[in-house]
Design a protein around this nucleic acid. Structure first.
Lengths: 243, 243
DNA sequence: TCCGTGTCAAGAGCACCGCTCTCGCTTCTG
DNA sequence: CAGAAGCGAGAGCGGTGCTCTTGACACGGA
C-alpha cells in the first residue's frame, strides 16, 4: 500500500529483528566473544553471507546489541524512578540503583558487553552515547531535584575554589544544575560504587565471599545515599536504612 | 650437571618464559580476545603446534597471564603499603588505592583480563585464587591494624545483631579480626568504589566526562577512607584531605 | 503489461583461528 | 649404549569473519 511499506521492506524489517533476537540469545549463552554470524545464520536456516545484507559486519551487529542493552537498562532505570514518590528523592535514588543491579543480574552477558572489557578492535560509534547515558541522566535529575527542593545537605562544605575539580565534570554538572561540586563529585563516587558492586557480583568476584548479596547491596547503597547528603525528608519512609 | 637443570630443562624454562612475554605483548596490542597461539608462534619463529608442548591449551596460557597479572598488582599494592609509615593507616589505605589505579592505567589490557568480562568458555582454576586476593589481603591487614590501634571509629554504631549481614562476609572478616561488621561492610564498599572507579577510567567511561582524573580519584578515595571511620591520627600528615 | 533496476539468498573462496596427530630427530637416563 | 622421553615440523580437521560472483525474484515506471 503505502510507498514506505512494501512487502520487501516489511520482510527486511522482520528479518533484521529476527537476527538481533537470535544474536541476543546466543549472547546469553556464549557471551560476546562467542557471537558468531555463521551460527546466527545457521539458526535462521540461512547462509552466513546473506546476513551481510542486513548488517555490514559483525561489529555493527554488536553495536545494535549494545544500543539495545543501554536502552533496556535505561528504560528499567527510568521506570523504577517513576514508580517512587517524586518527593522521596532518597528513595528514588535507592530504587534506581536496585534497578541497575536487577537488570544486570538478569542479563549478565549483556551487562558484560556494556561495562566489561572493551572489544579490542571495536570502538563504539557515536550512536551509542545517547542510550549509554540514559541511566546517568536519571541520576542527575534525582540529585538536581533533591538540591532544588532543599533536601540535599552539603556534606563538609563545598570544595575549595582552587581545587582542580571545582571547574571539572561539566557533562555531569549540567545534568544537575546548581548542585555544588562537592555533591557532584560524591555522586560520581556513588555511581562508581554502584557499577563496581554490580560488576563484582556479575563477574563473580563475590562468589565465595558474600552470601547475603541483596542485603549487602541495599545497605551499601543506602549508606552512600546518606553520604551524598540526602536525607529521607517529606516521608519518614522510603529510606529506612540500618540502625 | 645437576639432575634438575639439564640443557633441555633450561631451554624449556626459557622458551616458556618467552612465550609468556610475547603473549603479554600481544595482549597489550590486541586484547585478550585477540591473543593467538599462532601469532605467538609466528613471532617466535616456531610452528603453532610446537607451543602445545609448553601450554596444553590457549586457556592455560591465559591462566598464566592472569596469575602473573594478579601477582603484579598484588606486589605493587604490597610495596606501596610497605612504603608508608605503618602507623599512618589512612595514608596506607590511600596509597594502596593509588597503587591499584596506577598499575591498571599502565596495564589496561591486563587489568581488563583480571576485572573485565569473564572469557566465555573459561573458568579460572583454583591456582588463581591465591594471587587474586593478594590486594584484598593488604586491605584487610590495614583495616585490622587500624582497629587494633584504636584509630578506627565506628561510623554510626554497628549493624544490628539481627541484620543478615552481621554473620556474613566470613572470608573478608577473617582478614581483619575483631573489626565490627559495619566497618567490614564499608570496607567492601570502598573496594567496590576503587575498582568501579578504575574500571570507569580504564574502560573509557570517563573519557569525555572528567579531565582531572587524578584529582577526582584522590579526592574520592580520601573521602571514602574517612567514611569508613579512619582518621589520620599519630601524624597529622598523610591524609591531607580536602577542606 | 512488460522491462529495467535493485534486492535478495546462495555458493565458492580467502585468510585466519584452536587443536590433534604423526613423523623423524635430539636429548636425557637407566 | 640402548631405550625412553621430549622436541619441532608438518598436515589436516572444523570453525571463524568477510568478499565476490551468480542467478532468481520483486518492485516501480513506462
Amino acid at each position: 500500500m503505502s510507498s514506505s511499506s512494501t512487502a520487501r521492506a516489511r520482510a527486511r524489517a522482520e528479518l533484521t529483528q529476527e537476527i538481533v533476537d537470535i544474536a541476543r540469545g546466543q549472547l546469553a549463552t556464549s557471551g560476546a566473544a562467542g557471537l558468531s554470524l555463521r551460527a546466527v545464520a545457521r539458526e535462521m536456516g540461512m547462509v552466513s553471507s546473506a546476513l551481510y545484507r542486513y548488517f555490514p559486519s559483525r561489529d555493527d551487529l554488536l553495536t545494535r546489541l549494545i544500543i539495545d542493552g543501554y536502552d533496556a537498562v535505561g528504560e528499567a532505570v527510568e521506570r523504577s524512578d517513576a514508580a517512587v514518590d517524586p518527593e522521596d528523592v532518597a528513595g528514588r535514588l535507592v530504587a534506581v540503583c536496585h534497578a541497575v543491579r536487577t537488570w544486570a543480574l538478569a542479563h549478565p552477558h549483556e551487562y558484560a558487553l556494556l561495562h566489561g572489557s572493551p572489544v579490542p578492535g571495536y570502538s563504539a560509534p557515536q550512536d551509542t552515547v545517547g542510550p549509554a547515558v540514559r541511566d546517568t541522566v536519571v541520576l542527575g535529575r534525582i540529585i538536581g531535584d533533591a538540591w532544588a527542593s532543599g533536601r540535599l545537605v552539603l556534606p563538609d562544605g563545598d570544595l575549595p575554589a582552587g581545587s582542580p575539580l571545582a571547574d571539572d565534570l561539566d557533562v555531569v554538572r549540567e545534568m544537575m544544575p546548581g548542585v555544588p561540586a562537592a555533591v557532584v563529585v560524591r555522586a560520581v563516587a556513588l555511581w562508581a560504587t554502584l557499577y563496581g558492586m554490580v560488576s563484582f557480583e556479575v563477574f563473580g568476584t563475590l562468589d565465595n565471599v558474600v552470601r547475603e548479596r541483596d542485603a549487602l547491596f541495599d545497605h551499601t547503597v543506602r549508606g552512600l545515599v546518606a553520604w551524598i547528603g540526602l536525607r529521607a525528608d517529606g516521608r519518614g519512609d522510603g529510606v529506612g536504612g540500618a540502625a
